[in-house]
């Protein structure tokens, strides 16, 4: 028998703590596969953020360091500036990146840091039990927007990919989704392109991956994929927002 598909050596053998059906696991798998397929696992240092993926340093099969909440892009900057020939990525959720860590990701992009940011957008704070995030949709109920997000009180959602793509230091920005298998294949293509951008030293790359949170959305895993497709994609259109190719 020929092996068609098996677990990537880009991930460790440790089972993840993520809730059943949480697409964090799919995104982890894809990052692991890209690192393994590019044969850069031994040259990569990952920066784990704080949120559901705080334990990601136990799952990626490469050197990992744990950043304070929101500060992963700064930690990654410190690493990449010292080791420019190594690959450096951050893995962050929407609370970590778009709320407390907004300054760090914007300035890392503006500086054109040659790092790759994996930005998982599930429109909610997962680890702490379902609070509103900057990417929570209008009308979306969370424990801190119990009546549904109201723009007059809690303001409007933030579209990170569009915003970061306006920064000249940003080289490759794409938003993708995990709501079905064909789109999951696109997530992998995008993440691969981001690491290739880093490899060529073109500049800052960020892939925004729409993701589910069955537990805190209060929807079962399969329906969560549907909910994401029908509600999040309209608010967060998929696509490539920046691709400046090789600099002359």
């Amino acid at each position: 028998m020929i092996t068609v598909y098996e677990k990537t050596k880009g991930l460790t053998d440790k089972p993840t703590h993520y809730c059943p059906g949480c697409t964090h696991g799919i995104i982890h798998r894809i990052v692991g596969e890209v690192l393994a397929e590019m044969d850069i696992l031994e040259d990569t240092i990952g920066v784990a953020s704080v949120g559901c993926s705080v334990l990601s340093y136990e799952y990626f099969n490469c050197d990992m360091t744990q950043a304070a909440h929101g500060r992963a892009p700064a930690v990654a900057t410190g690493i990449k500036r010292v080791l420019p020939d190594r690959f450096v990525f951050t893995y962050q959720g929407d609370g970590d990146l778009a709320s407390i860590g907004m300054s760090e990701v914007i300035h890392a992009a503006a500086r054109g840091e040659k790092i790759t940011v994996i930005f998982v957008n599930n429109a909610i704070y997962g680890m702490t039990g379902g609070q509103m995030a900057p990417t929570t949709l209008i009308g979306q109920k969370t424990v801190t927007s119990p009546e549904g997000r109201n723009p007059n009180i809690q303001g409007m959602p933030i579209r990170i990919s569009e915003m970061i793509s306006t920064l000249d230091g940003a080289a490759y920005i794409e938003r993708v989704s995990t709501h079905d298998v064909p789109h999951i294949a696109k997530v992998k293509k995008a993440i691969r392109k981001a690491f290739e951008t880093q490899k060529k030293g073109i500049g800052f790359s960020l892939i925004e991956v729409l993701s589910t949170c069955p537990t805190n959305w209060g929807i079962d895993p399969i329906e969560s994929l549907e909910w994401m497709k029908n509600n999040m994609i309209p608010a967060y259109p998929l696509g490539v927002y920046k691709n400046i190719g090789e600099r002359e």
Partner: peptide
Amino acid sequence: LFLQAESEIAAINMVYGAAGTGV
């Protein structure tokens, strides 16, 4: 290498990253 960070918070976290590489 000298780098000016966007805040003292970012600066200490850049130090954290660099320190982690042993320099």
